[in-house]
Structure formats: structure tokens, C-alpha cells
Design a protein around this nucleic acid. Structure first.
Lengths: 202, 202
DNA sequence: GATTTAGCGCAACGCGTGTTGACTAATTTT
DNA sequence: AAAATTAGTCAACACGCGTTGCGCTAAATC
């Protein structure tokens, strides 16, 4: 065998991306080899490489595919803290289902030199920038601090596997996280429950 | 030349460790090669390797040498938040002086598979455990969350170089950080200023 | 149906890594 | 002063990596 139909080829490209996402969601950029991804799909390394141009481009595509800001951007701003903390803490469940969340890839490849430029850009554009508009006062700094809190918790839990953070059955961690986020999000002056009425440009 | 005196050899071992600390404080475990460290000291790779047994052991020694919990453990508990936030934010200055702080190595090699076991143990023993005793209520979870906040800020600033966090001239970031830490440290019931009087076993 | 195109595998290149064995020369030890 | 130990080098090994040239074959295109 040597060639498949055009549509089948596109589907295979998708399979490669899927396999890459799973790998990058579990291991660092360096620990993930194109050969392993190829083996997952059952094809040759060369094909993986050529389908995306380079390892770095494949990684960038994987990051792009798992970044879905809508997840936490929708809904009333009053519940932003709750939604963000859920995003971090629910991931355990996703992980077991083989899903890869937006923060997974970021966390695993933080300290990779080649990956960090891509991660920088994605973090800034897809998280900090949109979140900026949801703090009061609107502030890229507060948004960055929010990212810091979420990332820090994620890293300690999922990368370093610090035991005290692993058990989330009771809601203590979630409760603390929400408290922290609320400090950073700040209070809108007239934000009781109707919330999203004033000066909100979404 | 081929051999030096016993004391000179011990000094050279110290030089190797020093060079390793500088490297590990700037680059990830993977990006730091024994050859580079050897070149810094002006000796052969083999000698670096044999002096410490393996790259992993050298790394462990570097972590141990830069971990000095006394830095933030001393002093009245009421000022803990301020001291911890300073530890994170002052690092810019240290960095320029060629010093390597306790968090630098941790941050840089977070996502390295080989390094993570060492980092896990060090974080737990040298940070979370002692900090646990300084929260109210005393809690490993709160201590872990403190570590998460500090690490998150450090990572976003120094690894991802997220711009909004780079400028710390005005005190906003520090102020926000202190607010967050205070939430996690909690309030001792009768802690006004005399502070360290009651039930404190230090 | 002939010709061009493109999916895909095979094999190899070049590079950088941690690690090891052999060897040398100088310092300790006896 | 002889013998044993050891700091240190040189060269090489084995491995894994991303990447690339080449060729084959089936699908597109005409």
C-alpha cells in the first residue's frame, strides 16, 4: 500500500493531530517524540513530520486545537471565578476520559525552550487578553495573576503531584481557589446579580 | 597536568556545583548538558560526571544547595505574606547579580521527567511542610496553595515572560500577591502585633 | 487510458546526549 | 623511596532525536 484517497488523507492528518494532542497533554515537548506519535497512528515518522512541517508546527497546532477560550468566557461575570476554578479542578475527570484540556499542554511543556514561545503567545492571546476585560478595574495584570493562580495550582497538582492537592473530594481547595480569584477579579461597583448589564462590550 | 591536591579537588567539586547551579537556574534540566557545565569550569565532561555520579545526582545536589527554607521561615508570622511575596518579586535583582534563588531551579525544570521526582520531594519537604505550620488553621493544603500562587507568578513572569507581570516598579503586583497570600495564611484569632506568642512551637 | 500528482514508507544522515573504559601523572600513604 | 591511590583526560560507545532524499504506488487530472 502506498496512497489513500484525498479525504482519507485529511482524516489521517486529523488522527496525527489527535495523537499528538494526547501525547503533549501527558508528556513534555521533549519527552514526546514524533516516532511515538507515528506509532500511535500506525504510520511512519517521516509522514508525521511532513504532514505538519516540523515538530514545532505540530505542537503549535496541538496548542491551537485545545485552546477554546469560549469555555470560561461565556456566562455572567459574577460566576467567572467559579467557572475558572472548575476548569482547573474538574480536569481530573477529563484526564481519565482521555480528554486534554487547554491547560494540560501548557503545564507539561512549560520549561521547554522550543515550546515556550508558542505557549507565551497562546497564553497571552487566548487567556490573558480576553480575561483582562472581565476584571474590575479592567487590567492585564489582574488577568495575568489569575492565570498565575490557575497555572500554579495545576502544576502543583498534575505535574509535581503534590499530595495535599490531589484529594479534592471535599470542596476546600475549590473554595480557596474561588476566594483567590475573587480577590483578583475585583468587585464591580453595581454588580449584585443582574451583573452583565453595564458597560459590557461582549 | 593531571592531578591536584586533595583540597584543590574539593574546591573544584564546589566549582562544578556552582556552575551547575547557575545553569540549572537559567535553563531546564534537559537544556543543560554536562558538557556545558564542564566547559564553564574548564574541565572534561567525564570528570563532572564522575564527581557526582550522574546528571540526576548533580541536579539533586544543586537543588539541595539552593534550598534554604530559613529565608522565609524566620520572623513573625504576621509578616509571612510580605516575606514570601518579596521572595518571588525581588528575584529579578538576584538574577542580574548571578544569584540563583530556591524557586529558579524548580521553575525551570518543572516539566522534566527526570527532575520532577527530585523537585517533588524538595517542594514537599522544604516548603510545604514547614509552611503548613504557619497557616491558620495549620494545613498542608493551604501551604500547597501558597506554593501554587508563588510558583504560578514566578512561572508566568520568568519562564513565559508574560509582559504584564514584568514591570513591578509600582507595587501593584506585590500588593495583590500579599492579598492572595493572606487569604491562604488565614487569620490567627488573637494575632494583632505581638503575634508569635501563643502556641507557637518555633 | 496516459500522465501527472501526491500519500506514504524505507533507510539513512548528522547531531547531541549521558555514560564508561583505558590511561596518565601526581599526590598520598606506608 | 616505593607503592597505592586518585584527580583528571581522551576517546569512544550506544542511543534517541528531528529531519531529508529516494522510490513506489495508487489516486487525480486530462
Amino acid at each position: 500500500m502506498a496512497r489513500s484517497t484525498a479525504r482519507a488523507a485529511a482524516a489521517k492528518r486529523e488522527q496525527i493531530l489527535e495523537a499528538a494532542i494526547l501525547r503533549f497533554g501527558r508528556q513534555s515537548y521533549e519527552d514526546t517524540s514524533l516516532r511515538a506519535i507515528a506509532a500511535d497512528v500506525g504510520i511512519d515518522v517521516a509522514h508525521v513530520h511532513r504532514s505538519f512541517g516540523s515538530k514545532e508546527l505540530l505542537f503549535a497546532d496541538a496548542v491551537r486545537a485545545t485552546t477554546r477560550p469560549e469555555r470560561f468566557l461565556g456566562g455572567p461575570p459574577g460566576l467567572l471565578a467559579a467557572r475558572l476554578s472548575a476548569e482547573i479542578l474538574v480536569r481530573q475527570a477529563m484526564h481519565d476520559n482521555g480528554e486534554v484540556g487547554p491547560l494540560d499542554i501548557l503545564m507539561r511543556s512549560l520549561s521547554s525552550r522550543e515550546a515556550s514561545r508558542i505557549l507565551h503567545d497562546s497564553t497571552l492571546a487566548d487567556f490573558i487578553e480576553p480575561i483582562s476585560k472581565m476584571t474590575y478595574p479592567s487590567s492585564a495584570r489582574r488577568a495575568s495573576m489569575i492565570a498565575a493562580v490557575l497555572l500554579g495550582i495545576g502544576v502543583l497538582r498534575d505535574i509535581l503531584r503534590i499530595e495535599p492537592l490531589l484529594d479534592t473530594e471535599d470542596g476546600e481547595i475549590q473554595q480557596l481557589t474561588i476566594q483567590l480569584l475573587k480577590v483578583l477579579i475585583g468587585d464591580r461597583p453595581h454588580d449584585v446579580a443582574a451583573g452583565a448589564a453595564e458597560g459590557d462590550n461582549r
